[in-house]
Amino acid sequence: MILYFLSLALFVMGLYCLVAKKNIIKKVIGIVITEYSINMFLILVGYRDGGIAPVLMKGMDNSEIAAGSVDPLPQALVLTSIVIGLGVLALMVSICLRLYEKYKTFDMSEIKRLRG
């Protein structure tokens, strides 16, 4: 219970960093922290008490896995989410570098000429 709450607190801290900070790199860091908290929450939801990893070893019966393993479905989804996070981070950092090159600053309030 308290672990769920702590991961949601991490989520809120990432969102705060995303909204209230002026520096673009700080905003990127906020997105990264938010993503970590969501991954952690999904894995926490799928945990079973005393659970083993969902990998069948030699000499292990199939019913042993079925009775005592943790949930494999959130693990498969989080595995894709981590790699997507890496790609999106690279895209964000490249946009930040181009913005720095054009405006010579990372500060969001000084980038005034940004228009849609």
Partner: peptide, 26 residues
């Protein structure tokens, strides 16, 4: 391939040049 390409792009194309010519004024 994609991770290596992003690394190469960030480290070679992505350098910040000081005498950057603004090709269009917004």
């Amino acid at each position: 391939a994609s991770v290596f390409a992003v690394f190469i792009a960030l480290s070679i194309f992505g350098r910040v040049v000081s005498d950057y010519v603004e090709d269009e004024e917004v």
